[in-house]
Design a protein around this nucleic acid. Structure first.
Length: 265
DNA sequence: GCTGCATGATGAA
DNA sequence: TCATCCTGCAGCA
């Protein structure tokens, strides 16, 4: 389930899994048959993740652009892949086999189109060269609640519904405060935490935001599932830090959760 | 077996 | 703001 860390992890692991040889590309579902024909038999030179977008660059021009949306999923099999389901949009067979199902976007773009798309995205916390000042400027320009602004991929790329709640909790910021009233220090804190948390998520393959020490665990990996998050989907349960009841609100058209005491208005 | 929901984004109204 | 698209699976009967 795809926030930015999932795509960066997919880029890293699939590059290794598919390898440098030629890839058999097909579309068992049929909806990407034309695109698959363009790529079939070619070699992958790079898989690049930007925010929630994935770009496969090949030994010739067409670039495969994938956006998982809410439902999209990759499955990778090192050996003995099961037959693809009828919903498998793309099958890529190299050293390992990768299946893609349910993406919002799966299309062929040229380099200029990729550049244009990437230009519209805000800085990506998982990009080592990202410029946090672009994030600061984007927030200063927005009067919507900061909880909404964090979902805006043009302001910061890769944050989704889980991370936005967790980041604001950790930074002690009420989601309802206007984005342009969040201080520079607070934005610095938000950015640094997003770098740390998404990096951790990329390495672990799951979202964990709770400090292991706070729940008696030795490492993030050892935290049991119900204890991994501070506020997301924890409505009316006690805050892990202050026992106040976690509250929820609709922001940016989706539910989010926060602690009214740790994140005062 | 069915229903409802989910870590997303867009285009029309 | 709402409807729409995409899939899988938990929770129910």
């Amino acid at each position: 389930m795809p926030e930015g860390h999932v795509l960066h992890r997919a880029a890293r692991l699939q590059a290794k899994a598919l390898g440098h040889g030629s890839i058999a590309v097909s579309s068992p579902q049929g909806r990407f048959a034309e695109g698959a024909r363009l790529l079939d038999g070619h070699r992958i030179e790079r898989i690049r993740a930007v925010g929630k977008h994935l770009f496969y660059e090949w030994d010739h021009d067409p670039i495969l652009h994938v956006h998982l949306g809410l439902f999209g999923k990759f499955k990778t099999f090192a050996s003995d892949p099961p037959p693809p389901t009828p919903a498998t949009r793309v099958q890529m067979i190299g050293a390992s086999t990768v299946y893609l199902a349910g993406p919002t976007t799966c299309e062929i773009l040229d380099g200029a189109e990729v550049d244009e798309l990437v230009r519209r995205l805000g800085p990506d916390p998982l990009d080592a060269d990202a410029d946090p000042d672009r994030f600061h400027r984007a927030m200063a320009r927005r009067s919507v609640p900061v909880g909404s602004a964090l979902l805006d991929q043009a302001a910061i790329a890769g944050i989704g519904n889980v991370y936005r709640s967790e980041l604001l909790f950790l930074s002690g910021i009420s989601p309802k405060r206007p984005a342009n009233e969040v201080t520079t220090d607070e934005l610095d804190d938000l950015w640094k935490r997003s770098v740390d948390l998404l990096s951790l998520g990329e390495r672990m393959g799951r979202i964990v935001t709770v400090d292991p020490k706070e729940v008696g665990a030795g490492s993030p990996r050892e935290i049991p599932r119900p204890l991994r998050l501070y506020v997301y989907k924890r409505g009316s349960q006690p805050c892990r830090r202050c026992e106040t009841e976690i509250a929820s609100a609709e922001l940016g058209g989706r539910s989010m959760w926060f602690c009214p005491s740790c994140q005062p208005a």
